[in-house]
C-alpha cells in the first residue's frame, strides 16, 4: 500500500481527494502549506506527492525545487496541481521535475488514474 502526501491549502479539496484516494486503497497524509509539506515529506518519505502550485508560506514550485535538491527525496514522483491556464506554472513545474501536472478544476478520477500510473511505475 502506497503513502501519498497531499499539500493544498484548500481543506475541502484536500478532503475530497483524501476520500477518493483512501477509497482506492492508498494511505493519505495532508499538509496545508508548502513548508509543512516539505517537513512531512522528510518525515514519512511518501511514495508520491500531490502539490498545489499556489500555497501560502512556500509555493508548489518552491517545494518541488527543495525536494529535487534533497538526495533522499528527489526520486519521489510529484503531481503538480495548477490553476486554470497557468501555462507558466506548467512549464516551470516540468522543468523543475514534476512528473505530471493537472489543471484545476479536474475530476478526482483523473488524478486517480495519473497517481496509480506513477505508483505502479515506481514500484
Amino acid at each position: 500500500m502506497a503513502d501519498i502526501l497531499i499539500a493544498d491549502d484548500d481543506p475541502i479539496l484536500v478532503e475530497i481527494l483524501k476520500f477518493r484516494l483512501e477509497g482506492a486503497g492508498y494511505s493519505v497524509v495532508a499538509a496545508s502549506d508548502g513548508a509543512q509539506a516539505l517537513e512531512t515529506a522528510k518525515e514519512i518519505r511518501p511514495d508520491l506527492i500531490v502539490l498545489d502550485s499556489m500555497m501560502p508560506i512556500m509555493s508548489g514550485p518552491a517545494v518541488l525545487t527543495a525536494l529535487k535538491a534533497d538526495p533522499d527525496l528527489k526520486d519521489i514522483p510529484v503531481v503538480m496541481l495548477t490553476a486554470r491556464n497557468g501555462e507558466a506554472d506548467i512549464v516551470a513545474g516540468l522543468k523543475s521535475g514534476a512528473a505530471e501536472y493537472l489543471t484545476k478544476p479536474f475530476i478526482p478520477q483523473e488524478l486517480l488514474v495519473r497517481i496509480s500510473g506513477l505508483v505502479e511505475a515506481t514500484q
Partner: peptide, 10 residues
C-alpha cells in the same frame, strides 16, 4: 509581493 515568472505568487 512575491513575483515569479511574470505572475503574482503572493
Amino acid at each position: 509581493c512575491t513575483i515569479k515568472d511574470g505572475s503574482l505568487q503572493k
